[in-house]
Design a protein around this nucleic acid. Structure first.
Lengths: 190, 190, 190, 190
DNA sequence: AATGAATGAGCATTCATTCAT
DNA sequence: GATGAATGAATGCTCATTCAT
């Protein structure tokens, strides 16, 4: 056990770590159990299958990401300011939990995600699409299919995090520039 | 055999098809051989291992993508026009070879790519970085770490293609809007 | 706990029930404990191993069967009447305790029965063989190796119970006919 | 490979042997493969699962038993003579293939037999029930539910073979007595 | 050259048994 | 006494790779 939260939390932590180092598909459950400091049998006491474990990890972190973004959104602010807040929440999440972000966005989960996990994922997307739609109505965000704009912005952010993961060192100024550039994707004035 | 190019080409075709339908990691070599209409033994006559096959597919299509982008780049044109050309080449490649694009950009290859494959990948990136650097010197592309800007743009493009793959229908107007938005990521005037 | 007899009896009851529904070999001890309403740990307080539990269940019911047959045997009666009494005891036992009879006679226990259980089993057989031998001496039962005749009769009865278990519906008249037929196996006049 | 018939036949032979020595449920597939002199992987090339292997063995021998009984049945003969022929076929089969007979009749297969196997099993039963029904119409076999009479006779035969398996030595005279006794189960004159 | 049978290490999962609380 | 979390050996099955034909 590596955490106060007990065995289950230790398993979720260990699973995230090793799923990130290798990949969900390339990680034997024995490796997860080892990392968590428990036996395979114990892992199966907490999760009925490897898939269930993968879904639990996925959902846990998607929900944390969703919460962080939801919490970051200021009540009254311009769209540019709101975007900045959301952008920082997103990049901050990726900075604080790089393994979690990489696991969520850089791996393919199609083959095992269940409906709850997909719902959690859709919730993050939904918030983003809604944000864009409202910005368009307010005349602050460029016109166009909102899902497409979200895909572009989300993809850009994922690309950014992926590049950092590959070794790209970025200063705070760089990140500020990244924010400005990404906002330009949406800004009606660009 | 499904191609004039012979058995090797048939295997590369089959591999791309099944690696896209499933995943490199989830695809038994027997499935590739079946799809190519040959036996496993024959597959191993052309490729010494599954990894070698995966690398060959990866490199083949990364190189085709690089060629298409290189060919698309106009000799003398504004940076905006050059960007438009590159954007179209990229999106056109994804439209013409959706399985290839998905295999290249939507899967994780870290665990098996060899140095040649990584070189081929870097060549696409290198062209993009060079384009951005020159644009910056010419005062047309916003300042900032060129690798970072490339990561943002490349990520946005990948996000766009991924969204289409997930079922998002886009009109030509939508794509024009996407191009404008993505160019705004770089445009010094944004 | 489902019985006045306490935890041990509850475990024996539960074990018989689930060993019949599934099979001794296919039943995890946790299922037995659950059914008895106790924890696995408690099961192991009463029985040192799964084998010990299996043997206890086996012996318990073999002994009950032996007692019932012994009790049914009339003091003075013709062999035909004695046979009828034994037959009824046997069939009555199977009717009253179908799970017990099925567990005893329809499963394979060779892999785990200990010597006490085998002794209990032999006691039932012994009574039958002795009955046949005496009947032969009295000129009422057909000649032949008594163990063989017992095997035929016992097998016929097992076949009958097995058929009922498989869904064959029998009236009282049918059962009377079965008794007559089975007696014919032994009757020197047949 | 232990047989001319090739790997598949060797696996069926090995499976019967070890399923008889232990039990279907208690036999790891690795033991079957070992006995057949092949690797586990090879076993799975011939049978998609352990269940499939179990069914194949079951069906193979049920069909052989059915064939032997069908072949033994004389065209024109009294019911007693026909019964004698069937009895001898049955006991002869058990004598010639004791492991097959034990596997078929002394184990529980309910948990894995598929519909084809059950059909094969029903074919043996069906022949017996038909024989009894016709004998009843001809006034040679005692009245009563034919399935019940078959269950008694079949059970008696199984009991006989089981006893021999347990070490009971029987002479030809004993077997003749067994036949007479078993026929008495059916004979209307008993 | 082509085939496909054979191999065996590797993986997800189960379950009898133990023991700290 | 009772509990149930923890253990880890065992099992069914897969699949990359080899090699005799």
């Amino acid at each position: 056990m590596t955490r106060a939260g007990g065995t289950r939390a230790a398993l979720l932590d260990a699973a995230l770590a090793v799923f990130d180092e290798r990949t969900y598909g390339d990680t034997p459950v024995a490796v997860v159990a080892d990392r968590a400091g428990v036996s395979v049998g114990t892992l199966y006491r907490y999760f009925p299958s490897k898939e269930a474990l993968g879904n639990a990890v996925y959902r846990l972190w998607k929900e944390r990401l969703a919460e962080r973004i939801a919490a970051a959104r200021p009540a009254d602010a311009s769209y540019a300011a709101t975007f900045a807040a959301i952008f920082h929440a997103f990049v901050g999440f990726a900075a604080d939990h790089p393994e979690a972000f990489a696991f969520l966005e850089l791996q393919q989960h199609e083959s095992y995600l269940n409906v709850d996990s997909r719902t959690a994922s859709a919730s993050v997307d939904g918030m983003a699409v809604e944000f864009v739609s409202q910005g368009q109505k307010a005349g602050e965000i460029r016109p166009g299919e909102p899902n497409m704009l979200v895909a572009l912005v989300y993809g850009a952010l994922v690309g950014l995090v992926k590049a950092r993961r590959s070794g790209l060192r970025l200063t705070d100024d760089d990140l500020a520039a990244a924010e400005a550039a990404t906002w330009a994707l949406l800004d009606i004035r660009s």
